[in-house]
């Protein structure tokens, strides 16, 4: 367990950003999801020791960020969504400076700056001022600056923001690789659910300052809610009508031929499908639970 949040409430001028929130973040790659105003940014601020809680307790890597914010920030990395650079600095200088600010000696800082930039794939351009970089290079440089001081835990805020598809894929590969190559756990705050599916193995969903889901990604996606996808040969319309008469909610599966049906069977009773297929002389060639996409799950959780 890398983070423990216990009964945390944070109010700003009458607005409750976090409402008696309790959660734990396990080792690995965890997604922090939620609509705008859900409390993600406030939670990140609290975990970085940048704002105080109104009530409750927090531990990050066994350290309380309320009492020892610098101790926490020495062991965690943060990659912000927006540009966070210093004017006129090259990528090497920026990373070396970041490492020195985290308390590393100057020689070690320069060495690790080169290693971090090599890791994220910033080549000779590392000797040029960062303000002239493309969006992709800037994101990579931000990632290098966030990992240069060898953090145990890394908070990433929309790391693929503004990237084209190839750059996005490369950035996600880098993020996915951090745990295996550097032993660095990751908390990914994003709106892009496909990024979460690609990288994370655990998901936390916040809504209106409360935790609405805390589960492994596989478990969350496996929640099919009794929906089945049936592919038919023959008169799919007749089967649909027969099932509807039996009280089964049926919607078209979405294929052009109209041969697939989406069936709602909350109690998992498949016999009704077979009986109706026999009655309507329709072949059911495929019948399997329909797994939710993360988008669907996310929207349901927020309802």
């Amino acid at each position: 367990m890398q983070v423990r949040v216990q009964g945390v409430t944070r109010s700003y001028e009458g607005v409750t950003a976090l409402d008696n929130l309790s959660l734990t973040i396990p080792a690995g790659r965890t997604a922090l999801l939620g609509p705008n105003g859900a409390g993600k940014s406030t939670l990140l601020k609290i975990l970085l020791g940048l704002t105080r809680v109104t009530s409750g307790s927090v531990e990050v890597l066994g350290v309380d960020p309320q009492t020892d914010p610098l101790g926490v920030r020495a062991r965690v990395g943060y990659m912000p969504e927006d540009d966070a650079f210093l004017p006129d600095m090259t990528a090497v200088e920026l990373c070396a400076y970041g490492a020195e600010l985290a308390g590393l000696p100057p020689n070690e800082a320069v060495e690790r700056a080169h290693a971090a930039l090599f890791h994220v794939g910033v080549d000779d351009k590392r000797y040029l001022p960062v303000q002239g970089y493309s969006t992709g290079l800037r994101q990579r440089t931000k990632l290098a600056a966030a990992i240069v001081h060898d953090p145990d835990l890394l908070f990433l805020d929309e790391p693929t923001n503004g990237l084209d598809p190839p750059s996005r894929e490369e950035m996600l590969s880098l993020v996915a690789d951090l745990k295996d190559r550097r032993g660095c756990d990751v908390v990914l705050s994003t709106h892009l659910l496909s990024d979460v599916e690609r990288v994370c193995d655990h998901v936390l969903v916040l809504s209106a300052g409360r935790l609405v889901a805390d589960a492994p990604l596989k478990e969350l996606l496996g929640r099919g809610d009794g929906r089945y996808l049936a592919r038919c040969k023959g008169d799919a319309g007749a089967l649909s009508r027969a099932l509807t008469d039996k009280g089964v909610a049926v919607t078209p599966g979405g294929d052009a031929a109209g041969s697939t049906l989406l069936l709602a069977l909350p109690d998992g009773d498949l016999d009704v499908v077979w009986r109706c297929a026999v009655d309507t002389h329709t072949q059911v060639r495929h019948l399997a639970p329909k797994a939710n996409t993360l988008d669907e799950t996310f929207l349901k959780l927020l309802e």
Binding site: P69, R73, P80, D83, A84, L86, P87, G98, A146
Partner: peptide, 18 residues
């Protein structure tokens, strides 16, 4: 002013410096 413009406060205060 230059730090504010470049986002340097984010860079600094996400690190162990007060």
């Amino acid at each position: 002013a230059a730090d504010l413009n470049a986002g340097a406060f984010q860079f600094h205060f996400a690190r162990p410096i007060g």
